[in-house]
Design a binder for these strands. Structure first.
Length: 418
RNA sequence: GGGGGAAUGUCCCGAGCGGCAAAGGGGGCGGACUGUAAAUCCGCUGGCUUAGCCUUCGUAGGUUCGAGUCCUACUUCCCCCA
């Protein structure tokens, strides 16, 4: 691809955000003039977004930062009632309207950390497609939008084909998702002059359909840009760990856990992630990714702190870094580790190790705890537990009135006597 | 509408003569080695009050001392015919 002239595309290219774009020159020109009003849509299927969404959030961030255009965050209040089949092989559970509304509220808060909202020209704006999708009239929609879609072509789209090939059910309601998403694009153009849609590479088909529908419905030329599918160096899809999804909301995943996630990335991912998920300047990143061997841990810490700072703020990032240092480098019990309250009376009466570990959220059943103990995975106050009959008492409390429970070397929880 | 095939361990794929808590992968978790990395090796990967008991093979019944396995009905998917 020839070199872009706009800051926006230059930054995105340089930092590795671009997988596919519909028309480099067209996008570049609009970005150059600062008229590239762009939207990204987010489902409201969970109470928080997770790391997988971060990529597109960062793209919106750079859009605003480079002055390329107005970022629009589209909440899928309407489309979530239908369910996007892209990248899934299971029928999505239909959420109640209340759930969707609650999820929407949860998701909202994250964007304020990455975007500047307001009424001025390039201030970010948040929209909800329930606003125009909910009142749609079926007959009119079929007539105005439906007629532009070819079932033949829809059948050949990856999201549909995958379901068909794997012999999984694809309900009619989900089959319609791409019509709605395409229509969103058109509607956003009409309302806010949106010119481009961004998303993950799995959204390419939906985006292209939107561009197409726009042409047929008279929006003029629309554009699309997708980011590469985020995988780790080992090929795993990013966003989930044993502890659950890597949520962005602090009440779902504490800053410490978030920091730990970035601290533990694969060596091979450090440079790429620094570019994608932090705002560190490129020459600093080049210096960090040149580190090798033991030294690359410096780069990982920088990544963890920079990424955590972006999402949770400077103070939270500093605290997480300190907690990690105390826990992993100094071997002392850091007061800020995740903690769970435990009635003092339980400890006085003697609390068996199994229920204690479960209470701490480190395991799901006694059986799992027992197996973990036989694997040498469980520690109390950094002392390996050998006997699954081990009972915790007040004698295990350290000065701070806590017992440190560990599952493996990395997952630590403090049991706080209250 | 007719005919044939399929559904397995609630992550995925996938074996399974009527004695099955159910082979084997992948993935995940833990241990060793390291650097809170990767690779490698080893262990674990239904629940419980664990010499035992309970719940699991699409759903509901049935046959049998005993059913993932056989029979019937239903649900969903695939293929062929119309």
């Amino acid at each position: 691809m020839s070199a872009p002239t706009s800051d926006f595309l230059r930054v995105l290219t340089e930092r590795g955000f671009i997988h596919q774009l519909s028309d480099l020159a067209g996008i570049d020109a609009l970005a150059h003039e600062g008229r590239l009003t762009t939207y990204v849509g987010y489902d409201c299927t969970a109470p928080s977004l997770h790391v997988g969404h971060l990529l597109s959030i960062m793209m919106l961030h750079w859009l605003q930062e480079t002055g390329a255009g107005k970022p629009i965050v589209l909440m899928g209040g309407g489309t979530t009632r239908v369910g996007d089949p892209s990248g899934r092989d299971e029928t999505r559970r239909i959420l109640s309207l209340d759930d969707i509304e609650a999820n929407k509220q949860g998701i909202r808060q994250v964007f304020a950390r990455f975007l500047r909202f307001g009424d001025a020209g390039r201030d970010a704006l948040m929209a909800d497609n329930a606003e125009w999708l909910a009142p749609l009239n079926y007959i009119e929609f079929l007539r105005d939008v439906g007629r532009h879609f070819s079932v033949n072509r829809m059948m050949s789209m990856d999201s549909v084909k995958l379901r068909l090939d794997r012999e999984h059910e694809l309900s009619f309601i989900e089959f319609n998702y791409m019509l709605l998403q395409s229509y969103d694009f058109v509607e956003l153009h009409r309302r806010y002059g949106v010119r481009m849609q961004m998303g993950g590479s799995d959204q390419w088909g939906n985006i292209v359909n939107g561009i197409d529908l726009g042409r047929r419905m008279g929006t003029g030329q629309l554009y699309g840009l997708t980011a590469p599918l985020m995988t780790t160096a080992s090929g795993a899809k990013m966003g989930k760990t044993a502890a659950g999804a890597l949520w962005l909301n602090a009440d779902q995943l504490a800053p410490y856990g978030y920091w730990q996630f970035w601290r533990n990335v694969d060596d091979a991912d450090v440079g790429r992630f620094l570019k994608l998920f932090t705002r560190l300047p490129m020459d600093e990143i080049r210096r960090l990714e040149a580190l090798s061997g033991q030294e690359i841990n410096e780069a990982k810490k920088a990544l963890a702190s920079a990424a955590t700072m972006l999402l949770h703020g400077e103070e939270a990032a500093r605290l997480a870094a300190r907690t990690a240092e105390q826990t992993f480098e100094q071997g002392v019990i850091a007061a800020d580790l995740p903690s769970v309250d435990c009635p003092r009376a339980d400890l006085e009466a003697g609390l068996a190790i199994g229920p204690a570990i479960i209470l701490a959220g480190l395991a799901a059943s006694n059986g799992e705890v027992r197996r973990a103990i036989s694997n040498g995975a469980i520690s109390v106050n950094d002392e390996r537990v050998a006997d699954d009959k081990r009972v915790l008492g007040t004698g295990d409390l350290s000065e701070g009135g806590v017992v440190k429970l560990s599952f493996g070397k990395k997952r630590h929880v403090l049991l706080r006597a209250v």
